[in-house]
Design a protein around this nucleic acid. Structure first.
Ligand SMILES: [Mn+2]
Ligand SMILES: [Mn+2]
Ligand SMILES: [Zn+2]
Ligand SMILES: [Zn+2]
Lengths: 127, 127
DNA sequence: ACTACTTTCGCAACTGAGTTGCAATAAAGA
DNA sequence: TCTTTATTGCAACTCAGTTGCGAAAGTAGT
């Protein structure tokens, strides 16, 4: 049911997301917030924020979980279908504001789709 | 550099892939081959077969690694870009023979793409 | 078939992301 | 302030995947 109580830990985590438009890996978040909260807490808050429609998640190229802010999602209903980009050089991930077309597949019901593009980001190309 | 020696373990693993057109998760393979070879061996052979262009891999919706036979890939060069489907109900994954369009992204170089569709497979819909 | 060379394998120990159970803590409302 | 209950910290756990190394088994040459 999302976040029910705005605790100090929830605010701190939201602050981190407020400071960037990039996606953030859980590993990165746990490490960055190490002095402020337990890693279990990070996992649980991310879970609740996704459940509440404030964040969405995807699996990166190495199987690690990433989170990013939702833009157009109503609470507890993720609708904004967009691809993600992960840089092979620096590892960073971004949400892409690009429309994608999902192919229909005979005899299959498609409920969701994840498109992950891998390559080099702008920063890594310019150096 | 792919597989250099056709060992008993390599043959057994290829036999498993020869019996199905579906993708197989590493977890499943390790469990199925438990009496025949060590799990480290399974991981290493899969690695080599992918490197040699006989198999390709992708990350499933839960972050687990899956492998499937390559159709059009020359050895050590994976070219067949296609989406994968994973059933939310039974967990199985398949390669889809469907063309997908990869959007271009300004100021980014895209090297590869992974499209994962999630939903219900034919078997699970008919029951 | 024997030898030498090198790849491959088994094993056991390890790594690291993510989870669980439970007691302690702290929001939020009355 | 009191009560209720969501949330947190902690420690232990799970499990996919990796590593190092000595032993075993392909392979090519003789
Ligand atoms: Mn996104
Ligand atoms: Mn495939
Ligand atoms: Zn980069
Ligand atoms: Zn199914």
């Amino acid at each position: 049911m999302g976040v029910a109580r705005k605790t100090k830990s929830v605010s701190e985590l939201l602050d981190v997301f407020g400071q960037t438009d990039n996606a953030l890996s859980v590993v990165e978040l746990v490490s960055k917030l190490d002095q402020h909260m337990n890693k279990t807490t990070v996992y649980r808050i991310l879970d609740r924020l996704e459940d509440g429609g404030q964040l969405h998640s995807f699996i990166g190229k190495d199987g690690l979980k990433w989170y990013a802010k939702c833009q157009k999602c109503s609470s507890s209903h993720h609708t904004d279908l967009h691809p993600h980009f992960q840089c092979r050089d620096c590892g960073k991930s971004e949400c892409l504001n690009v429309d994608i077309s999902i192919p229909s597949v005979a005899n299959h019901r498609i409920d969701s789709a994840e498109l992950l593009l891998v390559g080099s980001c702008q920063d890594c190309l310019n150096q």
